[in-house]
Write a protein that binds this DNA or RNA. Structure first.
Lengths: 207, 207
DNA sequence: TTATTTATTTACCGATTGGTAATTAAATAA
DNA sequence: TTATTTAATTACCAATCGGTAAATAAATAA
C-alpha cells in the first residue's frame, strides 16, 4: 500500500506541470503518421504538429517507434471502433453491410486523412521499420480472423449456405475493405465506395 | 540523314564501354523499390543491388525519382503484362477470372517481392515523393478505367445484366485486386488468394 | 604514339535524419 | 526562503540522406 494524500481529491504532482494535452498531442501525431506513413513522417513535422519540442515528446511517449504505437492505439480505439460494432450485427449480411458502409464513410471523412492508417502507413518500408510493418500486418490478420469467426457462427446459425467457406468469405470481405482503403487514399468519394459496397451486397450469398 | 559507318554492322561507340547490363541493373533496382518502397529504398542499397556506384547510376538513369520511373516502366512491361492479356478475354466473367487468378499467381511468386509494386511502394509518403505517389495513383485509375470500358463493351454485347453498372463493377474488381495485393504482402499464399477469387467468381452476376 | 571520348572510382558535399546532454523555467514541500 | 522535482528550451550529436566534383581507367580515332 503506497502513501497517498489524506483526502480522495487528486493532489497535484510535485514538479512543473506539463503544458501539453496528452490526448490532443497524440491526435496530432496520429494525423501526421496517417497521412505521411511511418517513415515519411519526420520528427520535425511531428514536433510542429504536436506543438511540443523533441525532448518533451521523447519523455512523454518514448522514441518515434513507440510514439507511432501510441498513435496507432488511439486510432483503433477512436476511428476503428466501428469494426467491433459491425461484428455484433444480427446476420452475416448485416455484418458486411454495416462494416463496409461504415468503412466507406470513415475512409472518406474529410476531417482526417483519407484511407485506413493500418493499410497505408507501412505496407513497404526500409529495414528500420520492419517491426512496425509486421505489427500492422498482425492487426489486419486479427480483423480477418474476427470476421472468419463471425461467419463460422453465422453458418452454424443457418445464416450462410452450408457450402460457403467462412475463411474464404472473411478473406474476401477483408480484401474488399483493404481495396476500399487504397481507393479512398487515391481520392475515391464516399458515394463511389458505397456503390462498390452495393455490388458486394447484391452478390452476397443466399439473401 | 546522319553519318553512320559504311556497313550495317553496329560500330562500337567511342569511349570506354559500360561495364553494367542496363536491363539487369534496372531489374535489381526494381526489386529493391518493390520490397522497400520508394522512400524506404536508399541509394546505398540500390548501388549495392545494382552493383554500380552512384555516379554511374546517375549518369545512366538520372536521379532517384527517375530511376524509380524506369523501374516502374520495367515492372509494367514485364510483370504487369498479364493485365492487358486478361482484358482481351471473350467475356466479362472470363476477364475477371483470368485477371484475378493471374494476379494471385503473380502476387505470390516467390521469385520476387510479394504484392503489387503499384499498390505498395508509395501509398503514404513524405512530401518529397508526392509526384511518385500521384503517378502510382494514376496507374491504378487507368487500370480501373480499362476495366470499366471492358465491362461497358460486355454489357453492350449482352454479356452482363442490363441493370449492372460497369463503373461500379470495375471499382469492385479493382478493389479486390488491390486487397489481394495487400494480403499477398502480408504473407497470404497463392492458394488462399485463389480461394478468394473463387468467392468472387461464384457470385459474379448472371453466369 | 597522342588526342578524344566515355565509364568508373574515390572522395566529398550540404541537408536532414532520429535522438540527447545541459540548461532554464515552473511547480510543490519543508 | 530554500530545496526538490518535473517540464520546456536550447543547442548539439553522429549517422545517413540524395547528389556531385575531380581524378582515373579503358575504349576508339587519327
Amino acid at each position: 500500500m503506497t502513501t497517498t494524500n489524506s483526502t480522495d481529491a487528486p493532489s497535484r504532482p510535485r514538479g512543473r506541470p506539463a503544458a501539453f494535452d496528452r490526448e490532443a498531442a497524440l491526435q496530432q501525431a496520429l494525423l501526421v503518421f496517417w497521412s505521411h506513413g511511418y517513415e515519411g513522417a519526420s520528427m520535425a513535422e511531428l514536433t510542429a504538429a504536436m506543438n511540443m519540442n523533441k525532448p518533451s515528446i521523447y519523455a512523454a511517449f518514448g522514441n518515434k517507434e513507440e510514439l507511432f504505437r501510441h498513435a496507432l492505439h488511439a486510432y483503433t480505439a477512436r476511428t476503428g471502433s466501428f469494426i467491433g460494432k459491425a461484428l455484433e450485427a444480427t446476420s452475416a449480411r448485416q455484418v458486411v453491410d454495416q462494416l463496409l458502409n461504415a468503412a466507406a464513410a470513415m475512409l472518406t471523412d474529410p476531417s482526417h486523412p483519407q484511407g485506413c492508417m493500418i493499410v497505408q502507413t507501412a505496407l513497404a518500408c526500409g529495414a528500420a521499420c520492419t517491426e512496425i510493418r509486421e505489427e500492422l500486418t498482425s492487426y489486419r490478420q486479427r480483423m480477418r480472423q474476427a470476421l472468419q469467426q463471425r461467419f463460422e457462427r453465422a453458418q452454424a446459425e443457418g445464416d450462410l449456405p452450408a457450402d460457403a467457406v467462412p475463411a474464404d468469405l472473411a478473406r474476401y470481405v477483408a480484401a474488399i475493405h483493404q481495396g476500399m482503403s487504397v481507393q479512398a487514399s487515391s481520392g475515391a468519394s464516399r458515394e463511389e465506395l458505397q456503390a462498390l459496397v452495393h455490388v458486394v451486397l447484391q452478390q452476397w450469398p443466399s439473401r
